[in-house]
Design a protein around this nucleic acid. Structure first.
Lengths: 333, 333
DNA sequence: TTGTATGCGTTATCAG
DNA sequence: CTGATAACGCATACAA
């Protein structure tokens, strides 16, 4: 059991089992025309020899690598860890390997896509909020990847498939919840206001709120998608503001910004959440459920989204998908 | 610029440049014996044709994939995100691709290693605290990977290379810091007390403390490496305990446990940190620096550790490495 | 159900 | 410095 060798090839197994090399290949294929006896003999021989098909050679010959690239440029948001966990686990279960590609800045998109295509990935999945759509489009034009999926984010790229949580339903749910609770003066706290960012949640929320109440919603932009930037922005907004001028709720684009907002309110401004100001987030990261925050937020249907991704990879789904998530009411509203 | 095709092969470039296929290969190799003129011609032709070497075919022919598998089973700790970011970025810069492999339970180790070896990775890097050393050893025996590196964790596996923060120095620094600050009754809060876990930090701290003060250090074990488990354990310990029986500092095995401890103290027990009880962590995750926690912790030298990993991959380093980190004193002590 | 040629795109190695 | 031969390990198509 110890002298197993990795350089056993299908030929070796074939010889040991007394069949041809091609029968060995069939034995490892799900629905192949092969007798049960032959398959058993082959599998037994493979077991004792310690043989496992070489996926590299297989990919080269078949033009299918069973590899998908996960491309991201945002490692500061804990939500990415949740996404990575779900993606790698479910893809692995379905037989897909995952190549993790780090994309440093936006203009690195072509390099990331190039790396993916050089490894012959069957698809590239982009996760992350800080992508420039146009940069992505030009990168895609220069270096073709069989399938390009934008995951957990809105995008209008042609030649691209989007799988995301339905922001329209989500922001309406949040707005309805806030109106039910009696809040009337929300401020929307978003991430950076770059030209390229879609900021779909912001526009959806503000439009719906205005339609329902007739009043506009002021919007703020943090300089980055992290809590430090949110702390800075919220402190700057509220410092020295009198209680009756203050918003009664901060609607945040995601949890990490909401966490920063809460920290600013409590630690820098001495305000209570939700008594003085309420806060909502988006994503339902683990920290949102901790007793220290108890953040009211909105959970994306990651498992269902990943199942859709599997359909895309299988080729049975070829259009954009927007799935409804779920409001998670907690103590901050 | 738009009709670039991915199925351009070295032969096409060779034809376009008027050289042989092998000269094309040389043009893309760093230190190859090729005239500057030939290389320029080839590179120009490749540029216009949109050619990029196929890494799959390259791996098959050369027996070097330039791929390293990152194997982990713990996606609940935000510190993993920091590790992933550093690893993928620095490996990418050095020309390595990263295959992210999810390891569900301990007995899945052989499956993860098998997947890695089937893709012919040049090395596998294991990150994560919940690994069973013996399981890893048997998995390694069954399925050989060229190099197996245990990263950011202690291990004694033969045939394995460890790159980690020096826990001995670290725990002494923490102990010295606490003694300086006047703390005298620490309790060590560790993760699960499984047979396999090394719990190196715990033994190191308790032994050093005993040596310096002559008093033993009680130890607690949370049921998991997450904050919820830590909250439960700390609450159970201190609930109803009189102030003079209480420890004056909780020394935690890592930050996520420390965060849970703080939440328990503040939210469930109504105690103040550090006035009633101090807390220390390990890792310096981003949350530790937030104003809500201001956790005194210890930062692992991740960049330096990753540089050592690159040396291992290059073959210039072949022994275990333990690097000193840095104490980060903050508000919880 | 099983065996046989042929090709996937590259590199190691040797010849010129 | 450059060209040529022989793998690398498997899959596809087709023939038996």
């Amino acid at each position: 059991m110890d002298d197993l060798n990795d350089s056993v090839t299908a030929d070796d197994v074939a010889a040991a089992a007394g069949v041809s090399r091609w029968t060995v290949a069939r034995a490892f294929k799900k629905d192949a025309s092969i007798s049960r006896k032959a398959r058993e003999r082959v599998l037994a021989a493979a077991e004792t020899l310690g043989y496992a098909p070489d996926l590299l050679a297989s990919s080269l010959a078949s033009d299918r690598s069973n590899l998908v690239a996960i491309i991201t440029n945002d490692f500061s948001n804990p939500h990415k860890l949740v996404l990575l966990e779900r993606l790698t686990r479910m893809l692995w279960t379905a037989g897909w390997g995952t190549l993790l590609v780090h994309m440093s800045d936006s203009d690195d998109a072509s390099a990331a896509l190039l790396a993916a295509s050089q490894r012959r990935v069957d698809a590239a999945v982009v996760i992350g909020t800080r992508f420039d759509d146009t940069v992505l489009a030009t990168a895609l034009g220069a270096r073709r990847v069989k399938k390009l999926v934008i995951f957990a984010r809105y995008s209008q790229n042609p030649g691209t498939l989007t799988i995301a949580c339905d922001d329209v339903i989500a922001m309406r749910d949040i707005a309805d919840h806030l109106l039910d609770k009696g809040y009337r003066r929300p401020v929307f706290l978003a991430g950076p206001d770059t030209q390229s960012a879609k900021l779909h949640r912001k526009s959806t929320f503000t439009e719906y709120w205005q339609a329902r109440t007739g009043t506009p919603v002021p919007a703020l932009h943090a300089d980055a998608y992290d809590s430090a930037a949110a702390i800075e922005r919220v402190t700057r907004l509220l410092d020295g503001q009198s209680p009756d001028q203050r918003p009664d709720v901060l609607v945040c684009e995601n949890d990490i910004i909401a966490i920063g907002a809460i920290d600013a309110l409590r630690c820098h401004l001495g305000l209570r959440v939700p008594q003085d100001i309420a806060v909502t987030g988006f994503d339902d990261i683990p920290l949102a459920a901790s007793p220290a925050y108890q953040l009211t937020t909105y959970r994306q249907p990651i498992t269902a989204m990943t199942e859709k991704l599997l359909e895309v990879l299988a080729g049975t789904l070829t259009h954009d998908v927007h799935l409804p998530g779920r409001l998670i009411p907690r103590g901050t509203t």
